[in-house]
Amino acid sequence: MTRYLIASSFVPGVRGGADKIAADLAAAMRHRGLDVDTLMLPVWDAWEELPQQLLGMRLWHLEGAADRLIALRTPAHLLRHPDKVVWFLHHHRGAYDLWGTEHGTIPDTDEGRQVRDVIATSDHRALAEASRVYAISRVTAGRLQAFGGVDAAVMYPPLLDPEGYRCDEAEDFVFLPGRITPAKRQLLAVEAMAHVPSPTRLVIAGAPDQPEHLVPVRRAIAHLGLDDRVDVLEGWLPEDDKRDLMARCLACVFPPFDEDYGYVSLEAAHSSKPVITCTDSGGTLEFVEDGVTGLVAAPTPEALGAAIARLAGDRRAAREMGVTAHTRAGAMGPSWDRVVDELTRA
């Protein structure tokens, strides 16, 4: 029987969409009776250490371990294997689209530029080794083309059990689940709440990537006098609790900066809830149509707050957008069967 090895990376102590994609893909492949194992290799984002970690990826010997390697989160695609397929989640973005921006992670210094060039060179070489490259969104595919001339077919990661989401009567809160980190812009959502009339509340749920990522969020809540209108559920929310909050919310607020994909929009759609996002939220915009399945606002507290207030003041519109999102959800991407077919075909 053909052996498939799914390889991805993770930052110890941080859980995110990449873990979910790896776990769901393995489950979908096992459901098809395929022989699959998963390899999760740790990486650390300290930019000075990145070159040595990339070198380390090239030193593992997995040639005889499996018949096909399916690489997901960077830098797993650097692993060597004669039959390698890449389902690309995102670049090390600090070396690419986030270079020189406020979200950048590598300094624009001689050493920083050297690290950036090492990352780009190794990505270019490793992706050229793959027999096929898929991207999880049009945004990611666009970056692959723009930064390396790589043609990648777009293949959205589906939800494993979309029937597990439900829609209850909307209560008077909007919901923002996910990792708490500057690029997800929980701070913007808090600041937006200063422009939303009472009694609408914001519920933020997620684990901070680093403890200090929560500090400005809590500071803004206190500074804006929003203690009774913004709840922060700190920590990794159990799946059932997340689905319950999603079922009961008025809408999901998801304003990240240039998100790669954004499971939240897909989960919200299956919960028949509209999504309020921003014009620069990247992959999320592939699922949210302004005024139809949610609202797309400028990334300012005023505009985002106005969008929340609009749905809070027009429950019927919110409900209708949610229903439309749910209707469209099934057509948003391939089924897991199709994904497995693509990743396992000759």
């Binding site: 930052v11 110890p12 102590g13 941080v14 290799l41 740790p42 990486v43 650390w44 984002d45 300290a46 250490e49 990145l50 040595q52 970690q53 070198l55 380390g56 990826m57 030193l59 593992w60």
Partner: peptide
């Protein structure tokens, strides 16, 4: 060497 080069901060 690959083991030694892993990034295991955090």
């Amino acid at each position: 060497l690959a083991v030694r080069l892993l990034g295991i901060g955090n």
